[in-house]
Nucleic acid binder design. Structure first.
Lengths: 100, 100
DNA sequence: TCCATAAATCGAGATATCGCGATATACCGC
DNA sequence: GCGGTATATCGCGATATCTCGATTTATGGA
């Protein structure tokens, strides 16, 4: 876990908001029937919610993934992103232990 | 509490390290006798420990202060900085509540 | 094979942050 | 007032981040 990368990824209100939205799948439109059993949310839905460009959101999701805070899975043309709960918890724990 | 400012201030390993050092006064040289009863550490001691220029450390301390994470008190020519425990705890709590 | 769709990558201009040396300000003791 | 010390501020070049539109890559369907 790279705390520097993680804090850097968190140092943006929209990226933090994305992590918050991802806590609850119902923040996004319902999944297509063929994706009903898959975990995570596709880039297009996140983009729509965040109201930033496709390229920006794709970059943001890569950043979050690079920091370990989300996991991704490709299914056909879609990439589904979901929270990495362990990494998020570990990051918050490390920050608290360091600073508290 | 401005979480954006706080995370931004924390988004630097040396500023985080300073907050960690400030947990324990003994990380710095002993206070001058005439400062024995004062709380906090002067800029010069922090600078020496961090091994960055005086202007950089002064700016860093201003940033941390602006974010509310430290408090400052001027005594004569010296400015003494100390942790703002409540603000640090509140920042970590907010981050955890938002993201966890 | 072609076309359409989803996502990733590229290139760029605008803005922010980093860290410095130089300078300014504030305060002290003489 | 003057010189010295501690800190703050200024100006700057270097680097990083932000966000975009355009392009590329990957995939699926007709």
């Amino acid at each position: 876990m790279d705390i520097d990368k993680a804090i850097s990824a968190l140092n943006n209100p929209i990226r933090r908001q994305i992590l918050i939205w991802l806590k609850d799948r119902s923040n996004f439109p319902p999944a297509l029937p063929e994706h009903a059993d898959l975990d995570g949310v596709c880039v297009a839905y996140i983009q729509e919610k965040a109201a930033l460009s496709q390229s920006t959101i794709s970059t943001y999701m890569s950043l979050l993934k690079d920091a370990g805070l989300v996991l991704s899975a490709r299914h056909g043309q879609w990439t589904f992103y979901r929270r990495n709960e362990e990494a998020i918890a570990a990051t918050l724990k490390k920050l608290s232990e360091d600073l508290q």
